[in-house]
């Protein structure tokens, strides 16, 4: 059962019910951003609460604090990726990916007995980085305002008789010295109201 149908319990009996769902306003780029945002939060929580296991697996013993810090960074990037500032969140993920790769690179050395695990992690991060770059680019593009395309609204005064004629045309409302009187002002009454100002 969809959430739209489940929420009927909070509605009046006669309120319209969803029968068939249409196309969403949420573009694919935004759906991908959301997925990456949740992935980021899940990864960040893992790094925050199990830094020892991750460090040991990658041969980064003694760097639990660093893994925790990266976890906090992942959570931050995830929260921003889930917000309306998703492009900023995704680009911050790209920057984070670069940092992750730079951190993992020394662990690829022959002196690291866990270098196979580190190499796998490096490959995965590189793959995710690629996805992040594409997702960030797409999200930025889909919400961008077209450059150098300015519509001209200079003729949209909203005053059929011109701005000069409109200035002060309703000024007699001021004759009513409190809002309580103004609220009861009948249509056309300012023609009979005393001039002000």
């Amino acid at each position: 059962m969809s959430l739209a149908n489940l929420s009927r319990i909070a509605r009046a009996e006669g309120d319209p019910k969803v029968l068939q769902t249409g196309r969403s306003s949420l573009p694919t780029a935004d759906r991908v951003a959301r997925s990456l945002g949740w992935f980021s939060i899940a990864l960040g929580l893992t790094e925050l609460f199990a830094p020892g296991a991750i460090a040991r697996t990658l041969g980064l013993d003694g760097r639990k604090g660093l893994v925790r810090a990266y976890g906090a960074r992942e959570i931050g990037a995830g929260v921003v990726s889930l917000s309306t500032e998703r492009s900023l969140g995704l680009w911050s993920r790209v920057a984070g990916d670069a940092l992750d790769l730079a951190t993992l690179a020394p662990a690829l050395g022959r002196d690291n007995p866990k270098r196979r695990a580190a190499a796998l992690a490096f490959t995965l991060v590189a793959g995710v980085a690629l996805i992040d770059v594409v997702a960030a680019g797409s999200a930025t593009a889909v919400h961008a305002r077209a450059p150098n395309r300015r519509r001209n609204y200079r003729d949209r005064s909203g005053f059929p008789q011109g701005v000069a004629a409109a200035r002060g045309a309703a000024a007699a409302l001021r004759a009513h010295d409190d809002l309580a009187t103004a609220r009861r002002l009948p249509a056309g009454s300012e023609a009979k109201a005393p001039a002000v100002g």
Binding site: R150, R151, N152, Y153, R154, D155, R156, S157, G158, F159, V163, A166, R167, G168, A169, A170, A171, L173, R174, G197
Partner: peptide
């Protein structure tokens, strides 16, 4: 438009989007 009709001496419009500011300027 309402402030103009109500007779303000000057109406100042604040935004960042040029086309919206053009529309505001058109209204006085």
């Amino acid at each position: 438009r309402s402030a103009v009709l109500l007779g303000a001496e000057r109406v100042v419009a604040i935004d960042r989007l040029p086309e919206r500011l053009d529309m505001a300027e058109a209204g006085g």
